[in-house]
Structure formats: C-alpha cells, structure tokens
Amino acid sequence: MSTILKWAGNKTAITPELLKHLPAGSRLVEPFAGSCAVMMATDYPSYLVADINPDLINLYQVIKNEVEYFIKEGRYLFEARNDSDAYYKTRQEFNLRHGGAIERALYFLYLNRHGYRGLCRYNHSGGFNVPFGNYKKTYFPEKEIRAFAEKAQRTTFICTSFEETLNMLLPGDVIYCDPPYDGTFNGYHSSGFGDDEQYHLASILERRSSQGYPVVASNADTCLVASLYRSFTLHRIKAPRSITVDAGGGKVADETIAVSRPLPVWSGIDLAKDRDWSAGVEA
C-alpha cells in the first residue's frame, strides 16, 4: 500500500527494516507525521500522530472525518486542474488562506500530487513555493485515502512540536521518530530543522528511553547522528532516494535506524506491566 502523499523520505521502501525493530505496545507515538507510511504498515491498537505542519495535520483530520465528501471533491479537482496555470492559481489561493478546512485539505493534496516530485516546501513567510511538476497525468489516490480513513479511526492527530508530543506519553507507548534528516532538505515547514533541533530531539529520546519507553528513530548516517545516538544500537541501511535525482536513477542513501537498548532488569523501571503485549506490528 502506497501513501496518500508523495513525500521526500517516505518510509515505505524501508518499512520491512523498521518492523524488525518496532516492539509491541498499546500505542505508537509519531512526533513527525510525514506520509504516515509507518502508521499504515503497522497494527497498533491506537496511534498518536503529530506534526508541526498544520496543512499536513489538517489533511489527515479531514480525511478521518469527511472521507466521502473529500473523495468526491478531490476527483473533480484532479480532473479539472491539470495544467500549469491551474496549478499556480491553486497555489496562490492556498497561500492566501482562502477556504475552510476541507478546501485547504483538497488544495494541499492537489499541490502535493501536481507539484515537482511531490516536494513539500515553504518559504520563510510560510508560503508554499514548490513549482509545477509538469506531469502528463496525475494519480488521484482514492484507494489509499479510503485505507487511511479506516486506520485513522484509531488515531489522534495533533499539530504540535515534537517536544510537546513526547510530553504526552502514556505507559505502553512505543516511540517512532522520523525527523528531517541531518544534512538534507529540511524545509517541510518555515521554521526549519537544524543542528540545534537534532540535539534537542536526541536528548529527549535518550531521556524517554531511560524512563523505559521503547524508542526507534530514523536519520541520515552521519557523524553527528552517530554521536547523538551513541547510547542506542545503530543499524545502518541503504534507502532509495528520488528527490533531486533523475527518475529511474536508482540512487540510494546511507541511513541509520537508532534503537533504544532495553533497560537492565535491576534498573527498577518497568512499564511492561502496563502494556498490552498481545498487540503490535504486523508480521
């Protein structure tokens, strides 16, 4: 199952590797929603999915609550506007904040599927600025939308920072973090994500790990990441890349999956008694 959105760093291709490291638990907590590929590939009893990008969370919330109307209007929008003039007019309307939640969600999906390589990029003023992708035909992901809407019924979507999300943990939670990667494009939102944010995230994850929460985090395979997650077990993998390379180029990048180490039995911290260990990821 592919995702609703085209997304730089989409985890669909490396999901089999991630599933090896995601333990069972009562809820999966994702502070960086992205394309929700990991949510769609797992089967936890519930999910807490967050992102600082309000357009992304609005899209997911609208699909959760208004899937039939969204699909009907989305079909029409995709059929009626597949040229550069229509794209830039839609982008202008989107950046002027016209319309309510459903209309903005439709526009966001349209821009994602018609923009260059599905890139999600904003300028410092918060304006979506991805150019037209010039596709002969675009795909309206109705099948993916319906599957997402079903999974979303056991998901809470919130627009907030990773710090606030990681303050909402409950016994039995499993944490999966997929932040903007070190040394790569990080303009998914006007605030950006630099070295300071990488340090801050890693320090919070180390603290949550020491409190007994299982933590899995994806990032680039860089010296900074290796240093920040030195208390974790690091698994290095190759992942396909499509943004900024020619279609069909088949290029790959080195990535790291950081997995928290189990606490020693004498640590005195044990959240297992509060977990539903009969639930977890699909085989």
Rank of each mutant, 00 (worst) to 15 (best):
N112D: 07
R208W: 04
G133T: 07
R146T: 11
G192V: 07
L109F: 01
S227G: 13
H235L: 03
S210F: 02
T160I: 12
I204S: 05
P180D: 07
Y110E: 05
L109C: 05
C120A: 09
T222G: 08
L228W: 00
S191W: 00
R104E: 06
A202Y: 00
K136E: 13
E197Y: 03
R241M: 05
N186K: 11
F140D: 03
Y188Q: 09
R113Q: 10
Y176P: 04
R236Q: 15
F232W: 03
Y229D: 01
F140H: 02
S191E: 10
G192Y: 06
N129D: 13
S203K: 11
A247F: 11
R241N: 03
G187N: 13
M168V: 07
S242E: 01
D196V: 12
G187H: 11
M168E: 09
Y139E: 09
N123G: 11
S190G: 06
E142V: 08
K151M: 09
E164L: 13
E164K: 12
C223Q: 14
R146M: 12
T165D: 13
S218A: 09
N129P: 08
F132M: 13
F185E: 13
S227M: 12
Y122T: 09
F148W: 11
Y122P: 01
A247Q: 10
F108M: 02
H124Q: 15
L201W: 01
S210D: 09
P171M: 07
K136Q: 06
Q153A: 06
D182I: 05
R236Y: 15
A149R: 01
T184R: 08
R207L: 11
I243T: 14
